[in-house]
Design a protein around this nucleic acid. Structure first.
Length: 590
DNA sequence: GCCGTTTTCGGCCCGACTGTTTTCAGTCG
């Protein structure tokens, strides 16, 4: 898991992100040592990572005794963390690395080849890497091993061929996975007998990258669904198909698993397939503590007795004594405890949003719709206020000069006349230069009614310079919000590295809002930053950054990303009624 | 390796599918 953008930096040496990576590597290598990803020792390392990430602390400055107070961290892991921080390495890790070199570990990335098989291949045939394995398969040596046969050898050969396309670790950016999943769900919804269909997994939790797409279908007649899945457009390969479950790989290389359940078990199946795994484990443990059993078919009295709840997720959470937990929170980072204590945040939802404060028209070089079209679309979306934020003059090609902006103001006023219930602010997306300088001059920026300042270039400056750059922009009296905080492009470009604490503290001090950008390739700020911002009392603003009416749907995505950061309705500026929003803006500008 | 009004040892989530060892191990989610 990604540790965040410049979060956890501490002085010169090891960061908390490095510690998390070290623990993740320990877990990966212990899988081979223990022979199972479910081994208790493996899970202990993973639990420690969860605990550290949930705590959101800098572990590099903590003593062993302080470290053991983190959930999931005991004396042994605390000692290893200290060893790592002080010496830059851990003896046990070096030992495991020597025993399981990268080329050997790589073998377990082959789908269908787990730790037991890898070790067995090494012991029996001396297989140390992919090349050795290919040779062993070509020589038909694998099929001679006990527990193997011709079929499993051929399956292994096919899996290796596919490796470039779908390794187990391959993750797809949500911007690619979500449209694909929605298409598939649409197809399956038309199959005879299908009552409900929903994508689950990390996609429903709205993680920024997706391993594979899990789809749950409610139907009492699974057969036509299974037939429909293998016949879906874009299927490159059928991995397996049974009575109620089929797995395929699409041409894009995405694995899709479809599972059919009876309608009265739909809620339990949704819960199970949405995960996260850690969330499910926490719920099942809770069920056990209550003398019950929770599985993908329902919540039962002890030993598979009577059904307590199964048809909806809401019923199951309620039966467990928990408040409903939104899919976006199900990461086992405190949500189960909060649901039990009835202290979950009053999460922001799409229906709470009353305005969009960052979008463009064709006044911007990259805009693709007229002011009239964009305002009409905003009015249709039910908004009461919007800020039209064209690029400032410093953004090459796409920016607008002072004169162009003034003419644009008149154009907006005319277009706004058609929408008497919509307050239209004449705004700007200011460009934050490498030194933190902004477009135009301060007097002109003051005339603009809403300014969101964003980084669009110089992504590779050092952390200190990037931080300084943003601090200067935040301190400027004309900046109302910071747009797409790090400028990241998920799966393509990492964001700028910044001192997140310093930046968020400055936003509180200067009453500048933090944008949650709903573009799927951005989803910036990231959830861990949002959660930190919420804790510090930073005001959030969820925006679409739309360049076309079709992109206004991004508001839903921005909301879900904000939910992942535990953002409540009250934390989000653009949930306020027009009058309160304008009052906030006046106070800010004073 | 962690944890505990079940506490210093003995537990640790649950089930489908596959192939092969016709009763189970391995892998996966």
């Amino acid at each position: 898991m990604q540790a965040g953008i410049g979060l956890y930096r501490s002085g010169m040496g090891v960061t908390t992100g490095d510690v998390v990576a070290m623990l993740a590597e320990m877990a990966e290598l212990e899988v081979l040592e223990e022979g199972s990803p479910n081994a208790f020792r493996v899970r202990a390392y993973q639990n420690a990572i969860n605990g550290i990430e949930a705590a959101g602390v800098d572990v590099t400055t903590m003593s062993e005794e302080e470290l053991t107070r983190i959930k999931g961290v005991g004396p042994s892991i605390a000692k290893k963390i200290r060893e790592y921080v002080e010496t830059g390495t851990v003896a046990k890790l070096e030992e495991l690395r020597a025993k399981y070199p990268p080329a050997f570990v790589e073998l377990t990335r082959i789908p269908g080849l787990g730790p037991k098989t890898a070790v067995k291949l090494r012991e029996a045939l001396g297989v140390e890497n992919l090349e050795d394995l290919k040779a062993a398969i070509d020589a038909h040596a694998v099929r001679e091993l006990p527990g193997f046969g011709a079929t499993s050898e051929e399956k292994l050969a096919r899996a290796i061929e596919r490796l470039g396309l779908v390794g187990k670790d391959r993750r797809t950016p949500i911007a690619e996975a979500l449209p694909l999943a929605e298409r598939l769900v649409g197809h399956l919804g038309t199959v005879e007998g299908v009552e409900r269909v929903q994508y689950c997994g990390s996609l429903r939790r709205f993680r920024e990258t997706i391993g594979d797409i899990d789809i749950v279908v409610a139907s009492s007649d699974p057969e036509p669904v299974m037939e429909a899945v293998v016949a879906l457009p874009g299927v490159a390969e059928v991995i397996g198909t049974g009575e109620t479950k089929t797995s395929i790989v699409t041409r894009e290389g995405m694995q899709v698993d479809v599972r059919v359940v009876e309608a009265d078990q739909y809620g339990a199946a949704l819960l199970y397939f949405t995960g996260s795994k850690a969330h499910n484990i926490a719920l099942r443990q809770l069920a056990i503590d209550q003398g019950r059993l929770l599985n993908e078919y329902g919540l039962f009295t002890a030993d598979g007795g009577d059904v307590v709840a199964s048809a909806t997720e809401e019923e199951i959470y309620a039966a467990l004594g928990l408040d409903f937990v939104a899919p976006t929170l199900r990461e086992d980072t405190g949500e189960v405890e909060a649901a039990a204590a009835h202290t979950l945040p009053d999460l922001v939802e799409r229906r709470h949003i009353r305005g969009d404060l960052h979008f463009h028209t064709d006044r911007s070089g990259d805009g693709r719709a007229s002011p009239e079209e964009m305002l009409a679309a905003a009015a249709r979306a039910g908004y009461r206020y919007v800020a039209v934020t064209e690029h400032g003059e410093n953004l090459a090609v796409n920016g607008s000069s002072r004169e162009e902006m003034l003419a644009h103001r008149d154009r907006l006023r005319e277009a706004a006349a058609a929408h008497p219930n919509l307050t239209v602010l004449w705004g700007c997306e200011l460009n934050v230069g490498p030194d933190g300088s902004l477009d135009y001059d301060e007097d002109f920026r003051r005339e603009l009614e809403w300014n969101v300042a964003s980084v669009h270039s110089h992504f590779d400056l050092a952390q200190a310079e990037q931080t300084e750059r943003l601090l200067r922009a935040i301190a400027d009296p004309t900046v109302d919000a910071i747009g797409h905080l790090t400028g990241r492009s998920i799966g393509r470009r990492p964001g700028i590295e910044i001192d997140v604490d310093a930046v968020l503290d400055a936003m509180v001090e200067h009453r500048v809002a933090l944008e949650v950008n709903g573009a799927l390739q951005r989803l910036d700020a990231a959830p861990d930053v949002i959660r930190k911002a919420v804790a510090k009392g930073v005001t959030l603003v969820i925006s679409t950054d739309a360049h076309h009416p079709s992109e206004l749907v991004r508001m839903e995505y921005g909301v879900r990303n904000a939910q992942r950061g535990w953002a409540a309705r009250a934390d989000v500026l653009n949930t306020k009624p027009t009058r309160s929003f304008l009052a906030w803006l006046r106070r800010r500008r004073r």
